[in-house]
């Protein structure tokens, strides 16, 4: 464990807590893409299957349980509990255009042709594009609540910090995982436009208003 990965995991944890608090306090899921949240639930489910077969640390296990649990709670909030406030007209990204190519790529490009490894690879590839429905929804509605912007900033920062973690691990531990690094770069690059808007607008008290 290093500081980059720890801060990254905390940033990821913060993003999920911000999202749940926004939903619970405002009793609304307005502006939140249910499709992205479904993709995140798939990402965690396919990535943490080794939860039951291997033990790395208390931290590792508890974070995996938390991420899986909260991802399903979030999907439940959107499609059941706060369904009336779900803006399905603006959440129209065709996720099958993400899942099918990512599934095919995981099948072809992986470290080892075993079920667990292919599912892990699928999860890594899927996570890199899972935010697209949310970013698409923000561009369609033309704006995002500031709390949603904070959620996205924390979520985007987590993988950017993981990139620093991989640089650190490469130099100090000789650890290198090309699949995770490439997907992490794609994932972080997708946030760049949002990061720019967040830093130039939200931090100055303005709301994000993308050209619709």
């Amino acid at each position: 464990m290093n500081i980059f990965r720890l801060v990254g995991d905390m940033s990821h944890l913060l993003a999920i807590i911000i999202l749940l608090m926004k939903m619970w306090k405002s009793r609304s899921v307005a502006g939140i893409s249910g499709k992205s949240q479904i993709l995140f639930a798939i990402v965690f489910t396919t990535r943490y299957l080794d939860l039951f077969t291997s033990f790395v640390s208390i931290y590792n296990t508890s974070m995996k349980v938390f991420f899986i649990g909260t991802s399903y709670v979030t999907v439940y909030f959107i499609y059941q509990h706060f369904k009336p406030t779900y803006d399905s007209n603006h959440d129209t990204f065709r996720v099958e255009f993400l899942i099918v190519p990512v599934g095919g790529l995981a099948f072809l490009v992986n470290h080892e042709f075993s079920l667990l490894e292919i599912l892990w690879t699928f999860s890594i590839y899927l996570e890199s594009v899972a935010i697209l429905p949310q970013l698409f929804m923000v561009s369609k509605t033309g704006e995002a609540e500031s709390i949603t912007s904070h959620y996205l900033f924390a979520l985007g920062s987590y993988r950017a910090l993981y990139l620093l973690n991989w640089i650190y691990r490469y130099y100090f531990e000789g650890f290198f995982d090309l699949i995770a690094v490439v997907a992490g770069c794609v994932q972080t690059i997708l946030y760049c436009d949002f990061f720019y808007l967040y830093i130039t607008k939200v931090l100055k008290g303005k709301k994000i208003s993308l050209p619709a």
Binding site: R5, D9, H12, R47, D50, T53, S54, V56, S57, N60, M63, K64, F67, H111, L116, E117, W120, Y162, N165, G174, F175, F176, D177, L178, I179, A180
Partner: peptide
Amino acid sequence: CNHSLPKDEL
């Protein structure tokens, strides 16, 4: 590159 299971990263 070493990338064995279990993955120690989240």
